[in-house]
Nucleic acid binder design. Structure first.
Lengths: 342, 342
DNA sequence: TGGGCATGTGGAAGCGTTTCCCTTTTCGGG
DNA sequence: CCCGAAAAGGGAAACGCTTCCACATGCCCA
């Protein structure tokens, strides 16, 4: 367990010089530096991070706060963040903040206050006022992934636009009875889901079509259950579904198969995400790349740490339409060729 | 940004007493302690973690190393760990160590060496010799989740036993042509998959049945692809499948449906995991609860941190059979009632 | 009544870095 | 050849906490 003092002694220099050689700050003769590094290597010296944090005030650690870990989107974002941080030598400490739990309160009131990080990435946090206040009180740069905060930089998909394009795709194919599956209600639910629902509304309104919103838990089983309800009533059954996300869409496809409704012949389904399972189910969808969003957020944050003063930035990613085999013209219509829209 | 000195002054005591009052170590008069705590509260004092780590040598932080984040099992384990740590006031820093990447090398050679944690949880790491050496060189307690390490404590499912029971369940139902789906080869692949394959082998051997092992990537699409291959050849088609895990099993069920093979009438499928999607697909499976495994590992580690000397422990969890609707007697057999085996 | 023990408190010495400030050396150009 | 600036390096003071040690007090029991 050798310290910098050992390295210094062994290399025949002072602690000050050894430190400069190791950190690369300040003047050190090339030969001296090489010698110090060699000695450090031999001794297996590794700087104590607490000591250097204490001295510098920087931790080389980034905090990530997210409400879920076991959902595709979040796990992907996390991997994207991790990848960038790893490359830059930053540690990542994770704070799980499930809405409504006592753990979440503790994260905001205790854990974050410790400031064991130089900056924070908040993923789909949707903080309430008190939480937001704590967040800014920390006095460290914050970048959000997904969210509408005016107070932090943010990287996000243009959800409204995505849902609009999804709906438009179906309308272009000739559908008129198009239902939206997902989100709990117009008021409730995550901001993302409201935005997507809003995009659907807007698109339907523009086309003069009537809205049909079936609430569903935003998950695969949730989509399944809601689709079973929606589809088993012949009166209510639409010819196409816009799902709040791919998991819901896949749930709907599975439900349709169960009910003997052919996709896309009798029912078109479009999702938003390009989930890892989307291809397998031939799901037409709007791609958002959570991994890239995570990576972008990490890059942005590190940038702000380097730069003196960080102004608030907003990156809004445009989704790409990926046409697969879950959408086609409505039943009873002549087939129409549809090219992939860029 | 007030320090302990401010608190001490304001409370009219020395730094030493303030520290004792705040940490709860050593003698402090009840009244004094209350006063110090009140002052700290008012000032919004939060101890600098780097300073206290430096002074005590403890970080109140646990490192978690895992090769994937975006797979169900891993995400669940992580949540289990997180939950326990959160309750005990420990931070969690995450190290992503995907096999074969340069990032993994850096994690072992650079990141872990910094010892920014009091202990480590390694999830399904399967470290090679060099990596294992680094791991023990850190000199901090390590608990593995999944794995066969002789050098660390470990929490794991009895995979061999699970596969055995899965296979036995099918044999009890009267199946004779039972294939194993998953794992790349007998030599290759993760240790878990080899164990499970081994359990299948053992069970089949005991019953005098012939082995049929179809390699598959251990994922839902992997199971799908492999099942399409296996099932579309009528000569080769078994009456039952033991899948390496639920994701593979679900892939197989989806493939069967696509091919028009009724489950369970024409094909029984059993998985291992009790994945979140298992219920939706009516999958008969052996439950392992990754969340509990994660929590158990965290508890075990914290225990070892408290205790003076930590002897190596091994927790081997027994899986529970959950019978749903994906298994039944083979085609052409009179139906037999099967109760849920405890 | 006095010696030990439990309790309460303060001073000061770390913990292992980084960095400020100062001295010495080197080097290039007028 | 000399001078000033750049380069190189050392001593020591932080950084903000914990804890060892010393000391003071009050109390119980011999």
């Amino acid at each position: 367990m050798s310290g910098i003092e050992d390295v210094a002694r062994e290399a025949g220099v002072s602690k000050a010089t050894a430190s400069r050689a190791l950190t690369g700050h300040g003047y050190v003769a090339a030969a001296t530096r090489a010698r110090v590094l060699r000695v450090a290597e031999t001794l297996g010296y590794v700087a104590s991070s607490s000591a250097s944090s204490l001295a510098t005030g920087r931790t080389r650690n980034i905090g990530v706060v997210m409400p879920y870990l076991n959902r595709w989107f979040f796990a992907e974002v996390l991997e994207g963040i991790q990848e960038v941080l790893l490359a830059q030598g930053f540690d990542l400490t994770l704070y799980d903040a499930k809405p409504g739990t006592d753990g979440r309160r503790r994260v905001f009131d205790d854990f974050l206050a410790r400031k064991r990080f130089d900056g924070l990435i908040a993923v789909a946090l949707e903080p309430d006022d008190h939480e937001l206040e704590r967040l800014v009180a920390i006095g460290r740069p914050v970048v959000s992934v997904v969210g509408d905060s005016q107070d932090t930089s943010v990287v996000r998909l243009d959800d409204m636009h995505a849902a609009r394009r999804a709906t438009a795709h179906l309308i272009d194919l000739g559908h008129e009875r198009i239902a939206f599956l997902g989100g709990i209600s117009d008021q409730d639910g995550a901001h993302v889901d409201r935005e997507r629902l809003g995009g659907y509304h807007a698109s339907m309104r523009d086309a003069g079509l009537t809205i049909e919103h079936a609430a569903a838990d935003v998950s695969l089983p949730g989509g399944y259950d809601a689709a079973v309800d929606l589809l088993s009533d012949p009166e209510r059954r639409p010819t196409a579904i816009v799902a709040a996300c791919d998991e819901v869409a896949i749930g709907a496809i599975i439900a349709a198969r169960r009910l003997g409704i052919a996709v896309p012949a009798a029912l078109s389904v479009v999702g938003i995400d390009n989930h890892e399972y989307a291809e397998m189910f031939g799901l037409t969808t709007l791609e958002q790349s959570p991994r890239e969003q995570g990576a972008a957020a990490a890059e942005l944050l590190l940038e702000q740490l380097r730069g003196a003063e960080a102004e608030r930035t907003e990156m809004r990613l445009q989704p790409r339409l990926i046409v697969r085999s879950s959408t086609s013209t409505p039943p009873g219509t002549a087939s129409v060729a549809v090219g992939a829209v860029p």
